[in-house]
Amino acid sequence: MRNATLNQFYGLLAREIKKTYRNPWIIAITVVQPFMWLAFFGSSFSSAPKSFLEGFFHTYSYVAFLLPGVLSTSMLTVGMFGSMSTIQDKRFGYMKRILLTPTDKATIFVAKSMGSTTRGMVQLPVMATAAALFGVSFPLNPVLWLGWIAALFFLGLGFSSLFMALTVASTDWQTPGVISNFITMPLMFSSTALFPQANFPAWMRAISAVNPVTFSATFGRTIVLGGSIDWTLLAYLALFAAMMLFIGSVMATKWLKVE
């Protein structure tokens, strides 16, 4: 039975990945978007005095500060694609084709969540290359890179699962967009993805302290700016992913329908 579940999971995940990377628009946007973030947003402090950058961001390069935050924000939004893919499958009848095999709904849920997370992970090498072109230097320790990959994966998986769980019963194309707007903005701006929390009001600092995007952005910064790794933050992100995956799987088993 375990072998069957793994086969079904692998088949569904491979389908998600093939569908994604056979779409030239998705590839183009995946590559161009990080450059735009770093070029437009990253340049917004390019004329700021070094003393201000050092005092406020603890680095002379705002791009180096921004990179882990933008990557975390990207992983926050990838869940929308898993939701859209699920709704597309329902509307075009493909969900019925899947559910008319012995595949568990939870397996479908996990494969969709993993699929959208994998899609988001591609942004790490693209964005790191872009940041390097903007003058950011990176530590060469592979353990740090593996840790960073794991952290972003856990963040993406957690938010993909959350997205999917919130839209699992929906067949409306507009739902993922609405949920995305509802979730992304408050989580992004209440995190340290774009700015440090030093000047946040107390209530926002309280949200930021439990916001997984903050943990991921901080984790990335300890690597990029400090050349070290904080395993506690990684454990928190792993716990977040596991919880969301479990809750989403339970919800999918209960509410995922063919149409």
């Binding site: 086969n7 088949g11 389908r15 093939k18 569908k19 075009f92 095999t101």
Partner: peptide, 24 residues
């Protein structure tokens, strides 16, 4: 099905491969 439900982004063989995976 009445409506012909296949994955258009995949080849004929890939559609069969996926069905094989789902049926283990």
């Amino acid at each position: 099905a009445a409506e012909v439900i296949l994955d258009d982004d995949l080849s004929a063989m890939e559609n069969l491969w996926l069905q094989a995976k789902l049926q283990n």
